[in-house]
Design a protein around this nucleic acid. Sequence first.
DNA 1: CATGAATGAGAATTCATTCAT
DNA 2: CATGAATGAATTCTCATTCAT
Lengths: 216, 216, 216, 216
Amino acid sequence: MTKSSATKKEDVLREFRVREILDATCRVVARNGFQGATVERVAEEAEIAKGTVYLYFQNKDELFTAAVEQGIQNFTGQVRTQVTEALTPIEKLQRLIEVSLELSDTYRDFFKTLLLERNFLAASPNHPEAAHMLDLYLAHIHFIEEIIQDGVRVGVFRPHNVEASAFVLNEAIRGCFQQRALGLTARPVSEDASILLDLFFNGVLNQHQNHEEPVS
Amino acid sequence: MTKSSATKKEDVLREFRVREILDATCRVVARNGFQGATVERVAEEAEIAKGTVYLYFQNKDELFTAAVEQGIQNFTGQVRTQVTEALTPIEKLQRLIEVSLELSDTYRDFFKTLLLERNFLAASPNHPEAAHMLDLYLAHIHFIEEIIQDGVRVGVFRPHNVEASAFVLNEAIRGCFQQRALGLTARPVSEDASILLDLFFNGVLNQHQNHEEPVS
Amino acid sequence: MTKSSATKKEDVLREFRVREILDATCRVVARNGFQGATVERVAEEAEIAKGTVYLYFQNKDELFTAAVEQGIQNFTGQVRTQVTEALTPIEKLQRLIEVSLELSDTYRDFFKTLLLERNFLAASPNHPEAAHMLDLYLAHIHFIEEIIQDGVRVGVFRPHNVEASAFVLNEAIRGCFQQRALGLTARPVSEDASILLDLFFNGVLNQHQNHEEPVS
Amino acid sequence: MTKSSATKKEDVLREFRVREILDATCRVVARNGFQGATVERVAEEAEIAKGTVYLYFQNKDELFTAAVEQGIQNFTGQVRTQVTEALTPIEKLQRLIEVSLELSDTYRDFFKTLLLERNFLAASPNHPEAAHMLDLYLAHIHFIEEIIQDGVRVGVFRPHNVEASAFVLNEAIRGCFQQRALGLTARPVSEDASILLDLFFNGVLNQHQNHEEPVS
DNA sequence: CATGAATGAGAATTCATTCAT
DNA sequence: CATGAATGAATTCTCATTCAT
């Protein structure tokens, strides 16, 4: 009846083992960063022998790739499920943001490593230099923040959580980087910049029928 | 005097060498990813001997950390210079976005690796699995895109480049992750979600005096 | 009685299984060389589980030793049976050679690996370097061949298949090596050389009553 | 002037290192057999670090292949040099045999392993089972010996060192195996057998002008 | 200062062997 | 008896780091 009845006992066991190992991998990565994550440590974490890992994965690369893939699929899958339940687009986006943030809290350590290493590279958590990098990063955010704050002061920008908007703007720019770096857009820089600015300034709501109260 | 001037000359030479090595490091990382970036390859790229690297850096970690730090400082420094020249906050943000994107195009290979490797992990460029990860990522973006598109269709959202806003929203959420993961905020999830949604929906402009034309 | 007959039946079964496994071992060695012959592959080839091999053999070493021993005993046993049927020494030697060669054709793959791997080492079949080693070997044979050919030309040697005699001489020398290496003879080199040369030059036939026709 | 002056100092050093490592490899193989020869042991024997081996050879396979190749080339090269000095074919063959045997004495341990493993496989020296294999082998030789002895007794074969001729015959047959296994001949078995028998019975000398005294 | 050969600790991977089912 | 998943010792190979030249 259930999905598991269709598959054999061995397959279930195998799938279970695979999941166990991948989870252990995530925990090890979360703790040691990618550079410090060895097959040996993963085996220890999963409480199995080193060789056993190789019964389920061809090699280290496959293991780590699968771990991240599982992480992404877990995440997007859960988001999708929860978001689909909402009815209106606005509710959906509300759910999207909430669920995303909640999930990221759940898998915090793993994501933290992912993010840390993304931004500061070799800087895994408990890396002494990470703090310094973080300072550089925050200084940049702060620089943006001040610009926006100025805008609020002179009245071009509405009063709002400036710290947050500085952060959001920075990430939006970074996302644009990424799109460009990956070759997902062929637009000239100035056009991308326009779109970004327009969104940041005006948001997506249609002002003339903005009768809902989207924000709690 | 003479001594200090001699010292200065040496310092200049030293600084020059350091920069050369750091640049070589970035090129090697761009080409091989972080896992594949060895001191040997960096030395080759810089056309010096392996041992020479150790005359300027204590160890590999310091080298790579310095390379990234230089990258960040290069970036933020150049942005800062250019942005400061602008007068109004709006112009400043315009410059901020434009300069950021232009710079990222200049250092495209390096950034591409940074982004790829960290988002999709072991997936260095020309890693076969990277493409698959990218698909997963794009599928998620597309999912968000459709929600927004629906909103435009029913009229709650204004017509705009939906592909871009989906991207921006996703990155904004990711930025929020990061803030939370790094412990930079103690706000409950729902509050972060509200702030994000408000910004995404309404933008930062003060609607009642929105007389400028912010976008080219 | 009943007990022993039951035991006998078991023994027969056991012997059958042992033979099957040993045959599988030979096939695996023939295909993968000794370095590449693992217990796992043997089990696969015999279509049994890996663990089952250990019900019949203490360890890998015993398995492989037994396989070769079976190979040798198979071979010498069959030769012995067939040769004993012949009446005269000359006929016996004729049979010896024929049967030996025939058997070697039957077990060709196994012997080929044995010879290749041991003469040219790590060079298992389908090893790219094997071809090069073979060339070296053949060049040496050719060198000997030319010497003998010269002898035929000037008339000291009778016309005959020079290619074959070069081969035979080389192998005879190698056999002598072996005898010496294994400590089976304490003769000085010069004496061994004399004996070899005498045989190669004059053969073993008694010339004064050479009325038979030894060769078919 | 000399060959070394044409090559650079580094090259000489490199070649020297390579030779040293290959020699160490041969010694290790001689002592431990091929199965027991690890890169670690080779490094120890050469009194260098494990990693150093990899500065001169891509991997283990290349190392061992090169060792055997050097062994063969050493051998055939020295034989060739010495043999070429002799004038008549008969003298040349005399030298060939003598030099070959002398060289094999020099490199005895290495050749012993090569031969042992060829015949008895996994049976490296100091392998307990090797003795048993040797007995099987010797029993076969003895069997051949008795046939020949019979022939001497009844007068078809001339009196001679029968032990030696049995050995030689066996090796000649083995050589024929090899030629066939390697696909170097397409002759039917019976023809190969005839040629072998003819040589073994009659030798290669031209009887009608046999005035020299070929054997000391 | 610059070099690059040498080092060896450490990581990935293999595979003979065991043992619970 | 048969199985094959699990084990972990042993092995190959890498690469950051040192140091004699």
